[in-house]
Structure formats: C-alpha cells, structure tokens
Write a protein that binds this DNA or RNA. Structure first.
Length: 569
RNA sequence: CGGGGCGUAGCGCAGUCCGGUAGCGCGCUUGCUUUGGGAGCAAGAUGUCGCAGGUUCAAAUCCUGCCGCCCCGACCA
C-alpha cells in the first residue's frame, strides 16, 4: 500500500477523552474513530489488525476442530424467554419491537440461537460432538462504556459453542478450546494467564478467563507463587479454617455508648480494639430481601461469592430505609443480635469470640459478643475477598496479585441451555439424553487494544509481528530525489511480490514526519532509504521494538526481511 | 441511576466570573525556501460558540429547559 493513497489520519494531539494508552494510540494512529458512546468505526489500519487477529483465531479454531458459522444479530424474544434470560439478562440486552410489534433483541451472545439451531438439526449421538463458532458483532448496552474499544457496546467477538453427548466429551471439548486459546494468545506474543473465574450471567458449572496482564486492566487476579493456581480476585477461594483453639470464657455481653462511631476505623479507635476483633455487619438487598452479611472487621466482602451463595440475581447494599427496617437504627450500627434479616457469615467468624459488633441501636455497639453464644448464624460460607496474608487455597504457598484484561472466557455450561431449550439426542440405546454444552468467547477488539496496552512506548504502538497491520514500512527520506524514490519503489515491489505486507511512505513529507508516523503506527521494520547510505548502495533497517539498526546493501534487504518476518511469525 | 466535569474551526484549547458582535497552537490551501526525527517565511480558507426558548439596544458570555460526551460509583460476559 502507498501511504499517500491511504486513509490513515494520524494525530499528534492526545485526544482529550481518552485515558488509556491503548485508546489514545488507537485514535492517534488512525485505527478507530468514535461514532457515539461505546460505538466505534474501524479505519483501514485498525481493521487490518482486526483481520490479522481474526485470522489467527480462525486458524486455531479450525485446527481445534470447530467449524465457522454466521448467526443472526437480531433475535426473537421467544428464544430468550425459553432460556429464561429474557427476564434475567437485565438491561444490557437491547430490546426492541419490529413493525409487527414482535419483541426482539440484538444478540449480546448467542447461546439461544445456536442451541435452537443445533436442537433442530442434531438428533443422534452419531452427530456429536460438534463445535460451531462465529466471528460477529455483539451488542451489549453497557451501563458505562469506557476505555475505547476495551469496554464498548458494539464489539466484535469470536464465540464458539460445543455440544457433546456426555460430561466426559464436554470436558474434552473444553480442554481443546482451552488449549486453542493458549495457542491464540501465544501466537500474538501476549503475556497472559488463564485464571479460574466466576461464570456470571452466562451460567454453567465452571469457567476460565484468559487475562492479558496489564497494570491498566480492569480485573484483579490472584496467583500462587508456588503452584499453578490462578484466579480472578472475585473467584479466589479461601479455605474453611480449621477449628480454632477451645473458646475461653467470655465476659457477658456489654452494650457501650459509641456516639457517631459508624465505620470500623472509628469504632476501633474509640474502643481501642483491633479491626480483627470487630464483626462488620453489612445489610444487602438480595432480590429485594434483606440479608445481613457478617464479616471480620479487617476483611472485605466479596459480593460475587455472596450472590452465588444466595443464588440471587440482584445484590446491592441496602437502602437506608431497608437498614432501618432490619435493624431499627440508622446506617452504621447494624449487628447480628436481634436483627430482622437472614444472616450469612464468613468462615472467619467460626473461630471468633469476644468481639465488638453493632447493637442495632443508634450510637451503641456491643462488646464481648460471641457467635453462637449471642446470636445464631444460619449459614457460614466463604464470602470474603482473598487478601495479602491469605495462603494459596491449593497448596498453601504465598499468593501474589496482578491486574489483567479479560480477553477470553471459556465456560463449561453443562446442560443449562440444552435442558431449558430441550436440545436432546438419542443415544445408541434409543434413549433420549440432553446435550452437554460449552461456550467460548474472545473479544476481538479488546484483544487488539490489550496488545497495544502491553506493547507501546512514548512514541507509539509496537506491534507484535503477527498482529502488525504491515510488517515493513519503506521510508524514502525525500521523494523528490529520484534515486531514493526509485530504490524505495523497487524494494516495495519486490517485497510485496514475495508476500511481505509493505507500506511505502511515498508522501512528500519531511523525514521527521515520516519517522514519527512510522513509530506511532508501530510497524515492526522500517527501511530508511536516504542519500548517505544509498551512495554506498545501502539502506538502513530499523527494528521498532529493539531500536536495533542494520545497514545492508539494497540487494540483501529482501532476504533479510523475509527471514526476520518468518522468525517473527 | 447517583455524584462531578465538559461542549467555541478537523484536533488541542483560551475567551464565559464582569454582555459590546470570536481568538491561539497544531492541522488544511497556495507560493517560495528547506529536506535523516513532527521545517521557515508569506498569503489564505474554515465557526449555526451543542440545541431550543427567554432577558437585553446587544448573548459564546446571564436565566430556563433539553441533548451529547467524559470521569467516579452502582452494574457487568
């Protein structure tokens, strides 16, 4: 491609509404433009990268035995009512009515459509297993889109769905996808980590997220320094503690005046007790019902765990009214004793005695409270966030924390959808059985953004070769000098003929401008054709990543670059 | 949805408090010079000042309503 003819609007100014490096660079490098909140156009350079990545995804999905399909974006409400998600999916699902008043939605994901397709066509165990995938635009009406294409409303996604005859088969399908995902992200040169994850609204029995490691990532992950355990922070388990030492005699409950002391810090300071000797009582509204979650003062509630334990859809901290109703006091003094709410307690309360807890009375707390002596807990469970001092739940080793960008998610669905939508087949005994499913997503644009997040410097993007929109950019420093432009042109043609992806910067611009643009758009190799070197029959080849410069005779450029490209892919 | 902020040329911004008829830098056009890390000089073009009302002799500026965008939070595959 000739730069002079390309629609490639680069920019020097940092866009004022972009925070993340990848977002700023995608705009400055002329890859994307925003149409409206969370909705982006891809320009030629950006779309080339998208297609590069999609091709890698295709190759690996095909290699893993999946077959590509293309499913509708507009979907009838009936299917979603069948699966139950018309009600449960929430407002992220963009719903509308067509001219016949038929309720419809834009597909945020395609479990319903694919399950409908498969149940209509697959009738026997002989047709199983099958794995179907597509690369298609999804629409999710995000509450707050942000970070450019990282978290937007309309986005490209690869989604695959596996259908197996039994659990063992589903397990194997899951494994295949897991391995394919490893290969995909490895091929892109990304530093990533698969982590155990919560299944969220897709549901199913278990799942892994593929996290590209980046400080700017929205997700926190925990991993063990000793074993292979890694999990999303919201998923990271904490083992049930072994029984503590026998309880010592605890003085009787004592109500103390704690004027205006609402937070753990205030109460601890006032009563001169450490946070681990306080029971924090948080009132939640779980699908509208008041639930008291008890947790040690120095711990943090993990709402995902609470939601899963309760099996509820909506979980939020209770309103002041609900707190007043449950405790008889304003916010800040809730406690387990005498509360009118279902009580859930974190495992850490199991061994606790002699603690401070809210008295359900304004400006009062209890001292010397002990679970089970002073109040009953209906349910003890793992409800808190893992912390620095917790051991690895698998091996007891030391855990570490990091941040990541979720670029892929694989789910073992089980029969959640196949059962609700009756995707069944006949086994060899003529018995009707339910298919066992898995689903597997990769955020296309998000992966590209994550790659930039992980590969950039002050000058711009540094594309890993497999994702680069062009592998080589040829920069004659002055197109008005015939010798330079002729040499550049000849190199461009020969490399192009040999299959290299080349951009020829034939613009009548000063060298500095061209160098800046080449660095900004991140082309891995730049061939600089300048008068000094060319007088000796040579050109310079500069690596965007290492900055390393090779000076080569023009005749050797082709072999050199083709070799480097082969290595890099 | 709650809290905060912002909408002025393609981009980044000043001007708004204190009303007087729109400006800076970059980019763009033309010419000359320049030509290895975002050139210099000269001459230009480009604005319903987010939209709609209102106040006023006069509104980018004051008032009311609306719309859009960004940030924080709730939410989230």
């Amino acid at each position: 491609m000739r730069y002079s003819e390309m629609f490639l609007p680069t920019g020097r100014e940092v866009p004022s509404d972009a925070e993340l490096a990848s977002h700023q660079l995608m705009i400055r490098a002329g890859m994307i433009r925003k149409l409206t909140s969370g909705v982006y156009s891809y320009l030629p350079l950006g779309y080339r990268v998208i297609r590069k990545f999609e091709q890698i995804v295709r190759e690996e999905m095909n290699r893993a035995g999946a077959q590509e399909v293309f499913l509708p974006m507009v979907q009838p409400a009936e299917l979603w009512k069948e699966s139950g998600r018309w009600v449960h999916y929430g407002r992220e699902l963009l719903r509308f009515r067509d001219r016949h008043e038929r309720e419809s939605c834009l597909g945020p994901t395609h479990e319903e459509v694919i399950t409908d397709l498969v149940r209509n066509e697959i009738k026997t165990y002989r047709q199983l297993p099958r794995n179907l995938y597509q690369i298609q635009t999804k629409f999710r009406d995000e509450i707050r889109p942000r970070f450019g294409v990282m978290r937007c409303r309309e986005f490209g996604m690869k989604d695959a769905y596996s259908f197996d005859a039994d659990e063992a088969g589903a397990e194997a399908s899951y494994r295949k996808m897991f391995d394919a995902y490893r290969r995909i992200f490895s091929r892109c040169g990304l530093s990533f980590r698969p982590v155990e994850a919560d299944s969220g609204s897709i549901g199913g029995s278990y799942s892994h997220e593929f996290m590209v490691m980046a400080e700017s990532g929205e997700d926190a992950v925990v991993f063990c320094s000793a074993c292979s355990y890694a999990a999303n922070l919201e998923k990271a388990e904490i083992a049930k503690p072994a029984a503590g030492p026998p309880r010592e005699a605890v003085p009787p409950l004592d109500e103390v005046h704690t004027p205006g002391m609402r937070t753990i810090e205030e109460v601890c300071g006032f009563l001169q007790v450490p946070a681990e000797a306080v029971v924090k009582t948080l009132i939640y509204s779980a699908d509208g019902e008041a639930v008291a979650v008890l947790i040690r003062g120095d711990h943090e509630v993990n709402e995902t765990k609470v939601r899963n334990r309760l099996g509820c859809d909506a979980l939020e901290l209770a309103s002041d009214e609900m707190i007043l109703q449950a405790t008889g006091s304003p916010r800040g003094f809730a406690g387990a004793i005498g509360i009118r709410a279902r009580i859930l307690a974190d495992y850490s309360l199991l061994g606790m005695t002699d603690c401070v807890i809210g008295a359900n009375r304004e400006d009062y707390h209890f001292r010397h409270a002990s679970p089970e002596r002073d109040f009953r807990v209906a349910d003890y469970a793992d409800l808190r966030m893992i912390g620095e001092s917790d051991p690895c739940p698998r091996c007891g080793g030391e855990i570490r924390f990091a941040r990541g960008i979720e670029v892929g998610h694989v789910f073992k669905l089980g029969t959640k959808y196949s059962k609700a939508m009756r995707a069944v087949y006949l086994d060899r005994n003529g018995q009707e059985l339910t298919m066992v499913m898995g689903c597997y997503g990769i955020g296309i644009g998000r992966t590209v953004a994550a790659a930039i997040e992980q590969n950039h410097d002050a000058e711009g993007i540094i594309w890993p070769l497999p994702l680069a929109p062009y592998q080589v950019i040829i920069t004659p420093v002055n197109v008005n000098e015939k010798a330079l432009s002729d040499t550049a042109e000849a190199l461009y043609r020969s490399l192009h003929e040999k299959g290299a992806e080349v951009l020829l910067d034939d613009r009548d611009e000063r060298a500095g401008v061209k160098f800046k643009d080449a660095d900004l758009i991140g082309i891995p190799f730049r061939v600089t054709v300048g008068p000094k070197r060319l007088a000796e029959g040579k050109v310079e080849i500069k690596s965007r990543r290492s900055g390393e410069v090779s000076v080569l005779p023009v005749s050797e450029v082709e072999a050199f670059l083709l070799g480097r490209i082969r290595e890099g892919i």
